[in-house]
Design a protein around this nucleic acid. Structure first.
Length: 184
DNA sequence: GCGACAG
DNA sequence: ATCTTGTCGC
């Protein structure tokens, strides 16, 4: 999902149906979900300035979560925005939107635990490719203006669920199914 | 060996 | 992540 933060609207989108070739193993998420991200990315017409990943960036056992790894392959700035922690220690941040705490791992600050909405569970933000921690937090807070998750992440998730349902029911019948290359 | 563990 | 009913709060 390519989202225009100034117009507050979807600018482009694309999807891909890819068979999983790797199991989900904490610390190896990019090997499972990366291929699908890459194939869907080849179909979009508007290349974004930054990509927000549903997962970790630098806050990873080897310092390179899906945001860092795929960000490099795409050659585009990226940010890790996970709903839960993978590694690191932190103090619970304040309850207001914008309140944050450092996420430390091996004596290093690898990310931030940020409250994007007052009273909701915080997000685990960490730098991906070509982006600083401060910019990462700024980008996520700017994109999460309505709900807990950044708008593009929320909409992408919503679209994925919808497509998966439609796909699972149409795959049995002889009908065809849009490949996701349609441009808006 | 035990517990932790993005999606 | 997925399954899954009702329920709590804005």
């Amino acid at each position: 999902m390519v989202y225009d933060l100034e117009q507050k609207e979807v600018a482009d989108e694309a999807w891909a149906v890819v068979k999983t070739s790797f199991p989900y193993i904490p610390g190896y998420l990019s090997f499972r979900e990366g291929p699908a991200v890459l194939s869907a990315f080849r179909k979009i017409c508007l290349i974004p300035d930054v990509v927000i990943f549903d997962g970790q960036g630098m806050a990873h056992p080897r310092g390179a979560g899906i945001a860092s790894h795929i960000g490099v392959l795409l050659g585009i700035p990226s940010v890790g925005c996970a709903k839960t922690r993978l590694v690191g220690e932190y103090e619970e941040p304040g309850l207001l939107r914008g309140d944050r705490a450092e996420l430390r791992y091996n004596g290093r600050v690898v990310g931030a635990v940020v409250r994007t909405r007052t009273g909701v569970k915080p997000l685990f933000i960490s730098p991906g490719h070509l982006v600083t921690l401060e910019d990462s937090v700024r980008i996520v807070l700017e994109a999460a203006f309505r709900f807990r998750l950044p708008e593009p992440v929320r909409l992408a998730h919503k679209r994925a669920t919808e497509l998966r349902k439609r796909y699972e029911s149409s795959r049995s019948s002889p009908k065809k199914y849009p490949s996701g290359g349609e441009t808006i």
